[in-house]
Design a protein around this nucleic acid. Structure first.
Lengths: 331, 331
DNA sequence: TTGAAAGCGATACCAC
DNA sequence: GTGGTATCGCTTTCAA
């Protein structure tokens, strides 16, 4: 018969049950601790029977690793961000780290971050988002290491992992030039995102080197709809034979709009995107794109975390990731 | 001059700085506690200056709410799951709950769950996944409330929120019958998922009531590729004038395959999906579908959580959600 | 209104 | 090897 309020089983309960001291119980659950095998078995049986689990909060108070990592993911509005978040969560789990995930934006997100910072976090992983600067500042004061990606943060104590956006776009542009394209359009991401400017200049500089220039230039919001809208409102759409988009979502929107405007891809006009989100390889899409490597991103973040843990005082690092050209059916 | 190892600021530090007792500091950060306004201001200033944040672990040890909620999301392989996870995380954040997210499957996920259960969780939110039963059992032993969705779990202490799959599919089937379709194909989800069986029987029973039957029947894996493959290997594809898919991803794959096989949608053949993932409304897709309401799901989970917290002993509940027919361009 | 002191549950150092 | 005991940082009686 249970009592009404179910109390959590503690080490003391197990100790009493097994007829040993609390210390022995603690040693039984610790990896390399002195304990007679027979006694250990006895304790383990009692623990099993009672359903004992050491309370991570009490253990955390002892100055041990909390294994808690915060991830700030912003709005998670676009597909790439969601894929990154999913992979990052699995990656951390496999490394034995437990991610507390914070989403959203604005004041709600700010409050959330402030509250989560009450936990003894081992690190804060920042993925874009407008609050990045504030958050990293707060973490700095608390001595919590920050790992940023998506936008480079040039602050003390912040490690970065970042895609070579400009070089990647240069590769993509080069591909289309070699295919014989000469009249390029570009759909840019929103201003204010570091990646937007880098990607665009990768295109422009590469065109320039071949004596070419942009014939059309629109700005989207990194969404499918915005890519569609951008192309639908392009005045000289019919004159273009190549369209480069700052991300896959906009490229996918653009693809729909181009078909509606009577252009055929890739015979008539080439389209490439950026990211290689999972939809890019869907049979009905088959988008040629530049892969913004998610696995590389996640493993870099994990490496950075590891190195930071083993040497908290080390200098901050910046890891650069190269994008790969993925040839499908739209170039 | 900082000392080398940066120690976290504690209430004692603030107390010394403000010239008061530790108790006073604790009261200053507690909402409705006796404290002279002047003293409170003094303490708040000192806390601000030192960058003090109460340590949630130490506070959690006091038997207060931990605000920690675990979410088990399984593989997050398909789009719907990712969208649900994203919305759920934001929803919990807004409610002042901090989600520890566990992904993956197999032994790694099992270990992860076992470790996360060391934290004093307020609840475990389960989203499909093969480990559901094991996890809910472990939570039951620890007295941690479980909220399941995606698959109905008929276990003690488990609240459920669930879509009326069968009724939803009946509505979708009805739509196509009224449009004059008579030769139906169906692409089912993998066996073993409760939703697969329910959705399929919704189709079959509705057809039956109109004296119709399934002309083709394939099984996919809830992925785009599997929907594509299923249609490509359908022997009597040309004879069909309607195709119902157990989810949107497979419907999108099917759409691509149908076009490749020379069928035109929706003139020639109608296609509908299930879920209404965000890609369903993309300009190039425009899938007619049954909306598996994410917002309703998230708010139901939050409600359930709230009620469970305010009355831990209450009977378990089951909340049913209705799907809505979303008319786009493929029916 | 305030300070002193007793826990919360686990770990680690100490003698034995 | 093992059992006592101080300790982590906070909240919360209990006196004053």
């Amino acid at each position: 018969m249970d009592s009404d309020a179910k109390r959590r089983v503690t080490a003391a309960d197990v100790a009493k049950r097994a007829g040993v001291s609390r210390s022995a119980v603690s040693r039984a659950v610790t990896e390399g601790a002195y304990l007679a095998p027979a006694k250990r078995a006895l304790i383990e049986a009692a623990a099993q029977e009672l359903g004992y689990r050491p309370n991570a909060m009490a253990a955390g108070l002892q100055g041990r690793r909390s294994n808690l990592i915060a991830i700030f993911v912003g709005e998670m509005a676009n597909e790439y961000d969601k894929e990154v978040a999913a992979k990052l969560i699995s990656g951390l789990n496999e490394a034995g780290k437990w991610p507390i995930v914070i989403g959203g934006s604005g004041d709600a997100a700010r409050d959330a971050v402030n509250n989560v910072l009450r936990y003894p976090l081992e690190a804060m992983i920042l993925r874009s988002g407008s609050l990045s600067t504030d958050i990293s500042e707060a973490c700095g004061k608390l001595g919590i290491p920050v790992i940023a990606s998506g936008r480079v943060m040039d602050a003390a104590g912040v490690d970065n992992v970042c895609c070579r956006n400009q070089e990647a776009m240069a590769k993509g542009t080069e591909l289309l030039i070699q295919r014989g394209r000469t009249r390029f359009g570009y759909i840019s991401g929103p201003a204010g995102f570091g990646a937007s400017a880098e990607r665009k200049s990768g295109v422009i500089e590469t065109l320039d080197m071949s004596g070419l220039a942009l014939h059309a230039d629109a700005t989207g919001a990194f969404t499918v709809q915005s890519g569609y809208d951008a192309v639908m409102s392009l005045p000289n759409c019919a004159a273009l034979d190549a369209l480069i988009c700052a991300n896959d979502a906009m490229a996918i929107g653009a693809l729909g709009a181009l078909r509606e405007r009577g252009r055929t891809v890739p015979e008539d006009i080439s389209v490439i995107g950026f990211d290689d989100i999972s939809m890019a390889k869907w049979p009905s899409i088959q988008l040629t794109t530049l892969r913004n490597p998610i696995n590389g991103l996640v493993s870099s973040i994990l490496d950075l975390l590891d190195r930071r843990q083993s040497n908290p005082a080390k200098a901050t690092e910046m890891i650069w990731l190269d994008a790969e050209v993925i040839l499908r059916a739209t170039h």
